[in-house]
Amino acid sequence: MDDGTWVDPAGTTEITFGKLLERYKGSVTQTKRSRRSEECRIGKIMRNKIAEYSMRNLTTSILAEYRDQRLKEASNSCVCRELATISAVITHAQREWGLNINNPAKLVKKPRLPPGRNRMLKPAELERLLHELNAERHELRSKWLVPLAKLALETAMRQGELLSLLWKHVDFEERTAYLPMTKNGKDRYVPLSSAAIAIFESLERVDERVIPISQNVVLCAWPRACKRAGIEDFHFHDLRHMATSNLAKKLPNVIELASVTGHSNVQMLKRYYHVSASELSRKLG
């Protein structure tokens, strides 16, 4: 108490969980690259009755009830992310804000995550999709959608990485594209195939960005094109799965493949690499 470091446990436990969420959203979430998705997630949690509980009364059983309720409305993956956010907020309050509170979220059983997506387009489906992307009503948008999809297939780059790629970071001599910031917080150089180089060379330079459209344009145009092409349950991110599987045929070395795709570990890479039993049988001879 003389040093001014003592904290009254009774006082800290009376703080509501909603107050912690609000403070975390305003001070920590704003520093993250994924702040938009986390802001949305925290907003949903704050609208739930668990935000009204004090930290003294927020127990594992209450969070388990929250989990079960959310599983009726959302997917297992979504609920797992929400529980992870709840745990992160409380842990941050313990470590950084000096609050003497428990973290009941650590004891809550997480829902089982579904297996990784394995949606691969057949050549005819891909051709129909590219045709419909090119036929998008807004001409200024459609001219960028097809090269965006083709680059995703050739480089295995994420949508956000492609939309933020600058011309000054494309090196035609070294055949690389530099990404100063990726999803895992690290930079990386992406090697470019001859087909990828040809796509870059065919693009008009109208902006400092290679693909000068916003993510909202893709979000709006993609489902419309898939519907017109008669393709169901296919996301833009599935192109990354297709690209990784195609690259694996050229780069059997897992370390080399991971350096191209930007995966930080083999387990995550495994979720993106899909090979059929018939392909493996042909390799066996």
Rank of each mutant, 00 (worst) to 15 (best):
V89Q: 06
Y53C: 11
L140A: 14
P191H: 00
Y273F: 06
A88V: 08
E96C: 12
R137V: 09
R175P: 10
K183W: 07
G18I: 03
G43H: 01
K168D: 03
E201K: 15
L21C: 14
C40Q: 15
N102P: 08
L179N: 00
D207V: 10
P223R: 00
Y53E: 07
L239T: 04
T31E: 13
T261P: 00
L269F: 01
F172Y: 07
I213M: 04
N184W: 05
V275Y: 04
I45P: 04
Q267A: 15
S34G: 06
K143E: 05
E132M: 06
F236G: 00
I197K: 07
A135N: 13
R67T: 09
A243M: 05
H237I: 01
V7L: 15
H235K: 12
E14S: 13
I101H: 02
R23I: 10
T244N: 00
L239Q: 03
N103Y: 11
G185S: 03
M1I: 05
M268S: 02
L162E: 05
K122W: 13
R67K: 13
N246K: 12
R117N: 03
V266W: 06
E173W: 11
L126D: 07
H169F: 13
P147G: 04
I86W: 08
I231Y: 01
E82W: 02
F17A: 07
H131K: 15
R271T: 11
L58P: 03
V210P: 04
K186N: 14
E14V: 13
T31L: 15
A277R: 14
D2G: 03
K150R: 14
E39H: 13
R240M: 04
E14L: 15
L280S: 08
K72F: 10
K110T: 14
M55T: 12
I62T: 08
L162K: 00
S281V: 14
P180L: 04
E125R: 04
V7D: 08
R141I: 14
L251W: 13
F236W: 05
N265P: 04
T16P: 03
P114C: 04
N134T: 06
R282K: 14
D68L: 08
V266H: 05
T12S: 15
K249D: 09
E208V: 13
R240I: 11
K110Y: 11
R67A: 03
G43P: 04
E39F: 14
L148P: 07
T244M: 00
S37P: 11
W144D: 00
R36S: 14
G116A: 02
V7S: 11
E125Y: 06
L126S: 10
L179W: 01
K143D: 00
V210K: 02
S194N: 15
F234V: 00
L21E: 00
T31H: 09
T244P: 06
R119W: 04
Q30P: 09
M1P: 12
H235Q: 12
P111L: 06
T60I: 10
N103S: 09
H274F: 08
N100A: 13
A51N: 05
H138V: 12
Q159R: 15
K186Y: 15
G116W: 00
F200H: 07
E139W: 10
F236H: 02
L269P: 01
T91H: 11
I15D: 02
I42N: 02
R56N: 08
L58G: 05
L203Y: 05
I62Y: 11
E201C: 09
T5H: 06
H169Q: 08
T176H: 12
N118A: 14
R224T: 11
N103D: 07
H92N: 11
A221I: 01
